[in-house]
Computed example of a mutant assay.
Amino acid sequence: MEIMDGIHQITLGGDGSSGSHPTVSAYYVQGMDYGVFIDAGFPDEERTRPLLDYWRDTLGSPKTEWIFVTHRHYEHGGGVKLVKETTGAQVAVGAGDAEAVDADIGQGSKVVDKPLHGDEVFDLGGRHLRAVATPGHTLGTFCYLLEEEGILFTGDHIMGQGTVVVRTDEGGRMTEHIDSLRKLLDLDLKTVLSGHGPVMNDPLAKIPDLVRHRLERDEQILGMLREGTNHVDDLVSRIYGETSERLGFLARHQVVAHLKKLEEDGRAIAADQADTYRPA
């Protein structure tokens, strides 16, 4: 549906398939010269078809130049191959995630046309969209800013509900994630549109809270290390309690990301035993 002038939100999923969230949002942004997608849904046609149906039936198959992917995860970039073939649009993704998108989503064939490095600006006609490098969640996570309106599309970097998991196994780093959050405070933001959750109309108030939460978690984990809770799995149990298998998997990644940050900060040390840390 059109949620702002020339900005359309298409909600996909609803079957619990988008990770720990019930749905994922992709967006279509219309300029006077052409339109663009922000993210492209799932890798299978059944779950991505509503995105293309909306583009064709509601919007009338408008000229579309780009598919901007926020990051490599399958519910955000999974549909790029199908959307690209249907619309003729080119695919742009953060350089740090480009190889993974080609390998995992393109299944070895090249689907990424433009690896992004940050601050590229695209003139849609009356609207300028700037690519903003925000690594942390993954190595190549990007946000996209409509400069004139102060509207930022964030994918998972900032979510309308909950906090994002930092995936160190995919090049993510907690230190970079926090730095990327702080970087957004320098932008004149009015609205955040994320891949999960409601519209955020006061993002500059939310961002410091997100940073504070991460730093408080650092201190909580460091305190537990000092108390003798040293194994990753024991830390996960103390912090999160009983969880489903899926949420437990994500919680473990989150704890590992904080431990690696504490190690980078010189406040914790990886012990000889696997998945075990101690205070520095």
Rank of each mutant, 00 (worst) to 15 (best):
L259W: 06
A98M: 02
R47K: 08
L250A: 10
F142G: 10
S20I: 14
R246A: 12
S180M: 11
R278I: 15
N230I: 13
D179G: 03
L222K: 09
A257T: 07
A268D: 04
R49V: 09
G79Q: 09
L124F: 04
P279M: 00
S61P: 03
Y54R: 00
G41V: 01
G162M: 04
G106N: 11
I7W: 04
H177G: 02
L204I: 15
D53G: 05
M200Y: 05
A280C: 12
L193W: 06
T64K: 08
L210A: 12
P203N: 06
E2T: 08
S25M: 09
G155M: 01
W55D: 00
P22W: 09
F249E: 15
D113A: 00
D5W: 04
G6D: 07
T134A: 03
G155D: 12
P50F: 10
G118C: 05
L235N: 09
T163P: 03
G223I: 03
R217G: 03
G106E: 09
M32P: 00
M174H: 07
G88T: 13
G150R: 03
T23P: 02
E75Y: 13
N201D: 14
R49I: 08
D33A: 12
I7G: 00
L82P: 04
T163Q: 14
G60I: 04
D202R: 09
V132T: 12
I207T: 06
L184T: 10
G162R: 10
H213M: 15
D265V: 02
G13R: 02
P115N: 05
M1G: 10
D15L: 04
E264S: 05
V36A: 05
R49S: 14
I178D: 00
D119L: 11
G150I: 07
A100C: 06
G140N: 05
L204V: 11
K114S: 11
E147C: 10
D44K: 00
T138L: 04
E147R: 11
L152G: 07
L247K: 11
P62S: 02
D233Y: 14
E120D: 10
I7Q: 01
F142P: 14
R212V: 12
D265R: 12
S109Q: 15
V211D: 12
I105E: 01
T163G: 07
F42P: 00
D57N: 08
S61C: 10
D57A: 07
I7K: 00
S244I: 09
A257V: 12
V132Q: 04
V132N: 01
P43R: 07
D97H: 14
R72G: 06
G195Q: 04
L215A: 02
F249R: 14
T70W: 01
E170T: 14
G13C: 06
G155P: 07
G223E: 06
L187Q: 03
A26C: 11
G125E: 05
S18V: 10
V232C: 14
P208K: 06
G35Q: 01
T58G: 00
Q220I: 01
D233L: 14
E263V: 15
D179F: 13
E120T: 06
V36F: 01
F42T: 06
E245T: 13
L225H: 10
S20M: 13
G16F: 06
D44I: 05
F37E: 05
E176D: 15
G241W: 13
L146C: 02
E149C: 01
D104K: 13
L259P: 10
A89C: 07
E216Q: 13
P115D: 00
F142S: 02
A133Q: 08
